[in-house]
Each structure stands twice: as C-alpha cells, then as structure tokens.
Amino acid sequence: MPHIDDFVKDIMENGVSAKTPHEAEIKELTGVITAEKKKIEGEYEKIGRLYYKNNSHKTDGELGALVAGVNASKKKIKDSKLKIGQLFDITFCEECGEQVDEDALFCNNCGAKMPVKLLPGMVLCKHCNKAVREGIRFCTNCGHSMLEEPEPPKALKECANCGFTTNDPDLMFCENCGRRLVTEDGEEVTQEEEAPKEPTKKVCTNCGFEIFDVETMFCNDCGRRLVEASELENAD
C-alpha cells in the first residue's frame, strides 16, 4: 500500500481524471498543499537568514560549516566587486561600499580605515599609517621616528610557583613567594660556586607552621616570612 505522501505526490504531478469523484475539491486541496509548501520554504529561508545574522561568527558544528560557507561566498562577492572598481580606477570602502578618494586614509561615510596604496620606494609609517619615502628617519606626516624600535627585553628569570618575572641578574628568589627563580630554559638560578645548603627547620611566628626546607622563605598557610628555628632558640 502506498504511503500518503507518495499517493498525494502522484496526484499533484499527474493530476486526476475528470471522471474522478470530488475532482474540484481534490484540486483545491492540492492547491492548498502547494501554497503551504511554498510558505514553509519561505519561512525556512527567514529562519536561516535570522540564524546567520545572529551567529555569523560561529563556524563550528554542522550549522557552523554552513555559516562558514556563507561567509566565504560573501567575501568572494565583496572582493569581486572591489576588483571591478579597481579595473575602473575607482576606490570603494570595503566596509560600507561608498566611493572614497584614492588617497583617503578613512572612509568619509563610515570612518573605516582605508588600505594605503604604496608606490615603489614608499613605506608605511607604523604610527599614522601614512605612506612616506623609504629611508627617511622621521615621518613627514606625524614626525615619529621611522627607525625600527627595539623589542622589550624578555624576562630572564621566572618563578615557577606564582609567575613572577624579572630581568635582575642578581635576584635569586621570587619577591612574591620566596621560591627560587628559574631561567628561560628552566634551569634554577644559582650563584657561582654556591655551596649546597642543608635543609634547616623554619618556623612561622604567626601561625606556628613548620618546615624543613632551604628555598621556602614564606609560610604556606598565612604568607608571613619564616624564621629559622635556630634564630628563635638563640633569641630565647
């Protein structure tokens, strides 16, 4: 026995005989089915557009793959339009599409930064984004130095316990938690010819915490600086 969907589909594709009982009513009902299907397709499209509008940044999962496909197509369309403008020697804003002057730094319509076209022998100033002659020491637009700025020095030492960093070559222990610092390659910072120290008993005079350790300088419970037990005995 045929499924109702197949049965009705056959009627809609092939029609019904004029001698079929209720011919007019059947045609009216199939017309309703056709109209509602078109309506559903329209609603599907609206749902898809609404989802894309609210989730155009989400490109993970099954729906994300569709979103990524739409984004890629949109980019190809935009790039093609901009290329057409270039072929006519007309510059358009990549954000809003308005025509802008060829040497404009920003779009007069939406304020978006415009890409700078560099001629041979020209470079961009990293501070004002203006094209200037290559080799000059100072930007002719903003006056800033065009020389390469040195990168800030990397931290030479780091505390593996709390993340404290320092470039001080003489500092051996963390200023925050008192643990011994390590170098960039993970080696512990040591002094030259430093004699190994035997673990000594240390006591917290605030909460009574005790530990036998050379490196730990602060209490693990309350954070107060530890005192060697021998110092307390001598004080007594």
Rank of each mutant, 00 (worst) to 15 (best):
L171K: 10
K130S: 12
K46L: 15
F7N: 07
K53V: 14
E194N: 06
G223Y: 04
F7S: 15
E28G: 10
M12Q: 11
G31L: 02
D60I: 04
N55F: 14
N167S: 15
H3D: 13
V132L: 11
E25W: 01
A65W: 05
P120V: 13
C128Q: 08
F218P: 00
G64E: 07
V32H: 10
E228Q: 03
E45Y: 07
M12I: 14
L124S: 09
K83W: 07
F173R: 03
T190Y: 15
N220D: 05
L105S: 10
A131H: 05
E158F: 00
I84G: 03
K19L: 14
K157H: 14
N176K: 15
D221V: 12
R49F: 08
T20V: 06
D170N: 15
T91M: 09
P21W: 02
G121N: 10
T166F: 00
N220E: 04
A18P: 07
L50K: 11
L87I: 13
F106I: 08
G15S: 12
L181A: 11
E148P: 06
A235W: 02
T30D: 13
N71D: 04
E198F: 00
R225P: 13
E233L: 09
A131R: 04
E102P: 03
E175G: 06
Y51S: 10
E188Q: 06
F164Q: 08
E148R: 03
M122G: 07
K37H: 09
I77W: 07
N167I: 12
P196R: 04
N71L: 03
L118S: 14
N176Y: 14
K39I: 08
D6W: 06
E148V: 06
D236T: 12
L119R: 05
R180G: 10
K74C: 11
K19D: 15
L181H: 04
L171M: 12
E102V: 04
M1I: 13
Y52S: 11
I77R: 01
G178E: 05
E215N: 10
L147K: 01
E210K: 02
C139F: 07
T30W: 01
A104E: 12
N167W: 00
V100N: 06
L66G: 10
Q86E: 15
C174N: 09
K83R: 15
K78A: 06
T183N: 14
E187K: 01
T30I: 02
M114W: 09
E187F: 01
D5E: 13
V16K: 03
D221M: 02
E102N: 02
P21R: 02
A155P: 14
Y51T: 12
K202W: 15
I26T: 11
G85D: 05
P150D: 06
L119D: 15
K9L: 09
I4K: 08
D6T: 15
P196Y: 08
N54T: 03
G48W: 01
V182N: 11
C107Q: 04
E188C: 00
D221A: 03
H127C: 02
F88Y: 10
L232F: 08
N220C: 09
C107P: 09
C177V: 03
C96F: 00
E228N: 03
C174M: 07
N14I: 05
D60V: 09
H57D: 00
S145Y: 05
V67L: 02
D5V: 04
T59N: 05
E228V: 01
K27S: 13
V67R: 02
D10V: 05
G111A: 09
